[in-house]
C-alpha cells in the first residue's frame, strides 16, 4: 500500500484526509441531531435563544484551540523564515479543538447564564467524528505527522520509510473501546449532568498523553510536547471539576 492512499471517485482523485474530515463532520453532526432528541439529553438542553450562543462559543473556541495548539506543537513549521501566512491555515489538533471548544462553551454559558450541562450529548458524536477523522490521518501517512516511531513489532505499518507504530489505528481502537465502556456506564447512570462529558475528556486526554510518547513529535517543553502538556492540564481540570460535581448533594 502506498501512502497517501488517494481515493478515486467520479473521476476525481480525492485526498483521504479531506474526504475523511468531511465525512467525520457530517456523520458526527447527524448523530448529534439524533442523540439530543433523547429525553435524557433534551431535559438538559436550554432554550435555543441561549443555546445558539453556546454553539457559537464552542465553534470559536474549537477554532482557536485547535490552531494555537498546532502552532505550539511545531512552531518551527508554522513560523519558519521566510514567514508564509498560508502555512497558518494548515494544521489542527484534536486536543486543542476539544479544550478550546470546552473553554468557549463555558465562557458562553457564563455570559448567557446557562447552568445546565450541555456536553453530554456531544460525547458519542465527538467519538464517531474523531474515529472517522483518524482513518483519514492513517491513509494520509507520513505527511499527516500523526504516525508513530519506528518499531519491529509485527503490526508495524510501513508508511514509506520502514515499519512504524500505527498510532492512528491505536487511537481508533481506543475510541471504539472507550465508547462501548462509556455507553454501558451511561445506560446505568442515565443522567445528563456533565459526568459523561468529563469522563470522556479526561479518559481521552490521558490516552493522548500516553500515546504521544510513541510519536516522533518535538518534545521541546520539559521533555513533553505541547499536546502532552495540554492533555495533562485538561485532565487535571476535568478531574477537579468532576470531583466538584460528585461531591455535590
Amino acid at each position: 500500500m502506498d501512502f497517501p492512499v488517494y481515493l478515486e471517485m467520479l473521476g476525481l482523485r480525492l485526498h483521504p484526509h479531506l474526504l475523511a474530515e468531511l465525512v467525520a463532520y457530517s456523520l458526527s453532526f447527524q448523530l448529534y441531531l439524533r442523540v439530543r432528541r433523547l429525553s435524557v439529553f433534551r431535559e438538559a438542553t436550554p432554550p435555543f435563544e441561549q443555546m445558539m450562543w453556546v454553539i457559537m462559543g464552542a465553534m470559536f473556541g474549537a477554532m482557536f484551540g485547535s490552531k494555537i495548539l498546532a502552532w505550539l506543537e511545531a512552531p518551527q513549521d508554522f513560523f519558519a523564515v521566510p514567514f508564509q501566512p498560508r502555512r497558518l491555515i494548515g494544521g489542527k489538533t484534536i486536543v486543542g479543538g476539544l479544550l478550546g471548544g470546552w473553554a468557549g462553551v463555558e465562557i458562553a454559558k457564563w455570559f448567557v447564564r446557562v447552568r445546565t450541562s450541555t456536553g453530554d450529548a456531544c460525547v458519542f458524536p465527538l467519538i464517531l467524528g474523531m474515529a472517522v477523522g483518524r482513518v483519514g490521518c492513517f491513509l494520509t501517512g507520513l505527511s499527516d505527522h500523526t504516525h508513530g516511531v519506528h518499531t519491529r513489532l509485527p503490526w508495524g505499518v510501513d508508511f514509506g520509510d520502514g515499519p512504524r507504530h500505527p498510532t492512528q489505528l491505536y487511537e481508533i481502537a481506543f475510541l471504539v473501546a472507550f465508547a462501548l465502556g462509556l455507553g454501558v456506564w451511561f445506560t446505568h447512570a442515565h443522567r445528563a449532568n456533565g459526568l459523561l462529558f468529563r469522563a470522556f475528556i479526561s479518559g481521552y486526554l490521558l490516552f493522548r498523553f500516553a500515546v504521544e510518547f510513541l510519536k516522533p513529535s518535538e518534545k521541546i517543553y520539559a521533555g513533553c510536547s505541547a499536546i502532552q502538556l495540554a492533555s495533562l492540564a485538561g485532565t487535571w481540570l476535568c478531574l477537579w471539576s468532576l470531583y466538584g460535581r460528585r461531591s455535590q448533594p
Binding site: E21, L22, Y25, W53, M56, M59, M63, S66, I89
Partner: peptide, 17 residues
C-alpha cells in the same frame, strides 16, 4: 448569531477545502 458562527466553521472546513 448564525452568521458569526459560520466564521469559525467556514475557516475550519471551507478554507481547507
Amino acid at each position: 448569531a448564525g452568521l458569526i458562527t459560520s466564521v469559525p466553521i467556514a475557516v475550519m472546513i471551507v478554507l481547507t477545502i
